[in-house]
Amino acid sequence: MNETVKMAGVSKRYGNATVVGDVSFGLHAGETIALVGHNGAGKTTLIKLMLGLIRPTDGLVRVLGENPATGDFVARQRLGYLPESVSFNMALSGRETLRFYARLKRVDIAAAEELFERVGLAPEAVDRPVRTYSKGMRQRLGLAQALLGTPRILLLDEPTSGLDPALRRSFYDLITELRGKGTTVLLSSHALTELEGRTDRVIIINNGVAIADGTLDDLRRIARLPTRISVKLSQMDVAPRWANGGMKWCRNEDGVLAAEVLPDRKVPLLHDITADAALISGLTITEPTLDDLYAHFLRTQVTK
């Protein structure tokens, strides 16, 4: 796979405050990457570094082989960017706005206007001033401008915050389509939950440092988070054999036993529990959510 974005030992300091500290990663064509972190963790700063809007204090940033801060903007021609809470001039209509950006990117106006349909901006809304747009419509217009000129790299800063679920879904469908065409899509988000099944790779950023980088399965494996198993017993006063197997079971008044089980012990335990099916009347398995995973990585970094 060819590398489209390269960050090597990149740091950014403002005075004494380190916003990004020694971040290194490479992004490849056809890859969808999620940049996850709190508000203020340094996600937007990383994106701005890739755009060349700010210069790194240390390290090297290369976008399509160019230094984005000095290059003659050839790379920017093939780069789409959707800022966090995108804003446009309120007085101009959606069509006028997109035409303006299309001219700057040297994109054919007719080709640009096809994007309205692609992002699902209704034809009757296109000629209304942006002032009258809802948040979702503004976000669609923002996405339309990011897609101008079939970019090879898409940088989307919290693209789905504030969107309704239907819109979010169509948004991810569009990203899947782009990934098929070999576009590098980087999305930043402060929630891992909605990214399940959407991304190839997750980079978790905290306090300007990349604390985890890999697929969601990789991260799960590294984290070794316990699965929560709760069993509802058919009779209240029975103490099943498997309940004293070294795990810490809690029993509540409804006769439900619950315990946290590490991944490698999960399957043998389930086997034991289900061996005597007459004893139990219910079984719930709660896998660690992505939020748990995220919290785990943040915790481990703090203790480090």
Binding site: L51, Y81, V86, F88, N89, K105
Partner: peptide, 14 residues
């Protein structure tokens, strides 16, 4: 302040 400059400068323009 309105945030439009950020987007504008991400375009190939000096």
């Amino acid at each position: 302040e309105r945030g439009t400059m950020l987007l504008l400068l991400s375009y190939p323009i000096g």
